[in-house]
């Protein structure tokens, strides 16, 4: 489904450094790593929002790194993305934000769009919030609107960049409950990045750690605690002493 081969991304310093990755269809994959280790850049590279400096990015059998913006538009229809800052359009109300992917895709009746928006907002616990503007919502509510927008068109690949950043533990649990419920229905391929390792582990089946632009661990979530890599070991335990 998603394959990265020797992907390099460089700005003033290397961000991704010969990164390899292979995700099968339907996998729920989590990515952890220190700040500024390239997590968000990796997600954006997979979605085609960032072009790699070199290497190959394959999505659903298509190599996308050499595609121009017009070709990329077609590929991106396969993705739903929740951004770190939610990226809600502040000139649209909640209903318009959530409906946007359906409206732009075309071919869906306005009444059906309205129904699907209401149903999706109900699913994320925001029934009746259609006319509210994003700046009237709390951080947790904005995240839930972002999740509703990312998943309303039932894309085959969903990318969550820090779905619980800045949220309290209870809201974090609610958000992951919501993500699990959505996943149980959609069976999409999921890539999720989070700094909240424990919460992320309750959601994903496979987890990886990125460090200095490379994947240094990629395996089952249940096997993460047994990893002997000193960097992984220190990071997941939050220890002060170690290579990090």
């Amino acid at each position: 489904m998603i394959r990265l081969k020797g992907v390099h991304k460089r700005w003033d310093r290397p961000v991704l450094d010969g990164l390899d990755l292979h995700l099968e269809r339907g996998v729920v994959w989590g990515l952890i790593g220190p700040a500024a280790s390239g997590k968000s850049v990796l997600l954006k590279t997979v979605c085609g929002l960032e072009k790699p400096t070199s290497g190959e990015v394959w999505v659903d059998g298509q190599e996308i790194s050499g595609m121009d913006e017009r070709e990329m538009m077609k590929v991106r229809r396969k993705f739903g993305m929740l951004f770190q800052n939610n990226a809600l359009f502040d000139f649209m109300d909640v209903g318009q934000n959530v409906a946007f992917p359906l409206v732009r895709a075309g071919g869906v009746d306005p009444e059906e769009i309205e129904e699907r928006v209401a149903s999706r907002l109900k699913a994320v616990g925001l029934s009746g919030s259609e006319r509210k503007m994003p700046n009237e919502l709390s951080g947790g509510m904005r995240k839930r609107v972002g999740i509703a927008r990312a998943t309303i068109a039932s894309p085959p690949i969903v990318v969550y960049d820090e779905p619980t950043a800045g949220l309290d533990p209870v809201t974090t649990s609610k958000i992951y409950d919501l993500l699990r419920a959505i996943q149980d229905q959609s069976h999409a391929t999921v890539m999720a990045v989070s700094s909240d390792i424990n919460a992320l582990r309750t959601f994903v089946g496979r987890i990886a750690m990125i460090y200095q632009g490379r994947i240094i661990y990629d395996g089952l979530e249940s096997e993460l605690d047994g990893c002997q890599d000193p960097v992984v070991h220190q990071f997941i335990r939050g220890e002060l002493e170690g290579p990090l």
Partner: peptide
């Protein structure tokens, strides 16, 4: 990231 949000929505 609203501009990236638009691009992500094709």
């Amino acid at each position: 990231e609203q501009i990236d949000g638009l691009r992500a929505l094709s």
